[in-house]
Computed example of a mutant assay.
Amino acid sequence: MDKQVLKAMSHHLSPVSYKRDDYIVRENQPVSRMFFITRGEVTKNENPPEANFIGEELLEWVLDKSFPTILPLSTCTVRVVSNDAEVLILKARMLKNVVSKFMKHFSNFASLSDIQLTWLKKVEIFQQMDEQVLEAICKCLKHMNFNVAKRHILQEKKPLKMMFFVIRGVVLIESDSALEENVKNTCEIGSFYGEELVQWVTTWVHKSFPAKLPLSPGSALCSVRGGPVEILALKADDLKSVVSEFRSKFSTETTLPTDSDQPRELTILKN
């Protein structure tokens, strides 16, 4: 990287101290800052790190001139193993200020679609898909905002019209089904919900899609205390279009579910 850019970044570095067993960053969580280890010892995925900086994934984010809300996800977990550690941090908004002035120096970094791919690959079924299919799916991802507490994003036992990734706020997941009495969980930043939709679509890839979507196994609502919610949504119709376009990329050995062996969350709505 150009020395002029590095010098500009150095003006925005701030020291932070950590104690033994503190986590500096966790795998699959959004990267909101870069870290430079100046004192102490850390492990990266339980192994000694190869370099003294963490969070290089954040550099991918700067390519998009709009600086989208969605941040890259960490590819590692970093934990302090010495009695303490001192770290210099560079916050995302400070990096944004620097890059705004030196955008031409960042033209070789990954595109926004690369960042979105890291989010998709958090879902096991996407990890098994062809890269070309994933790139097409990335183009279908849509930002959606919800500003009213307890507003439904998805409703239990209603058509599962999308799967989504949480990129801001907290989504409350509720289920009062007989199998899961009054179950309540949360989806926070970096989490996803509704992957059953992907399983359903890919199951029917070599047949005509049924007219009815699978049922949502729970209700997804905006949390009262989590503030505004922003999600990255993959809608059912868009997913079906992509899968239909790339049918040849999917195995022909998929077994279609029957009424007797179909999982509860994949049950198709009946008339």
Rank of each mutant, 00 (worst) to 15 (best):
D2N: 05
Q4R: 09
L6N: 00
K7C: 03
A8E: 13
S10A: 12
H11M: 04
S14K: 15
S17G: 01
S17D: 08
R20L: 11
N28I: 02
N28W: 10
P30Y: 04
S32C: 10
F36D: 04
F36R: 13
I37T: 05
R39P: 07
T43L: 12
P48E: 14
A51T: 15
N52G: 06
E56Y: 08
E56L: 14
E57M: 08
E57D: 10
L59F: 10
L59I: 04
L63R: 15
K65P: 11
S66A: 09
S66P: 01
S66N: 02
T69E: 09
I70K: 12
L71A: 04
L71N: 00
L73D: 02
S74C: 03
V78D: 07
V80G: 02
V81S: 06
L88V: 02
K91N: 13
M94T: 06
M94S: 14
M94V: 05
L95Y: 01
V99K: 05
F102C: 03
M103D: 11
K104V: 09
H105A: 13
N108H: 09
A110I: 03
S111C: 08
S113Q: 11
T118H: 12
W119Y: 09
L120C: 05
L120G: 01
L120I: 03
K121Y: 11
Q127T: 15
Q128Y: 14
M129A: 15
D130P: 04
D130C: 06
E131C: 05
E131P: 01
E131D: 15
Q132D: 09
Q132V: 04
V133K: 13
L134A: 08
E135Q: 15
I137S: 12
C138N: 14
K139Y: 05
L141W: 01
L141Y: 07
H143E: 13
M144C: 12
M144D: 13
N145L: 12
K158I: 04
K158V: 06
P159H: 00
K161C: 11
V166Y: 10
G169D: 03
V170Q: 05
V170N: 06
V170E: 11
V171F: 03
L172Q: 12
I173D: 00
S175I: 08
S175H: 04
S177M: 02
S177V: 02
E181P: 08
E181N: 10
N182L: 14
N185R: 15
C187D: 06
E188H: 12
E188F: 00
F192I: 09
Y193S: 07
V201T: 01
T203L: 02
H206C: 02
S208H: 08
F209D: 01
P210D: 00
A211W: 06
P214G: 09
L215G: 10
P217H: 06
G218P: 07
S219F: 04
A220G: 07
L221N: 02
C222P: 01
C222V: 09
V229I: 00
V229W: 06
V229R: 05
E230F: 03
A233S: 13
L234V: 06
L234A: 09
K235C: 07
A236S: 07
L239T: 06
K240R: 10
S241L: 14
V242P: 11
V243E: 05
E245S: 11
S251V: 08
T252I: 11
L256S: 09
Q262R: 15
R264F: 13
E265P: 08
L266N: 14
L266H: 14
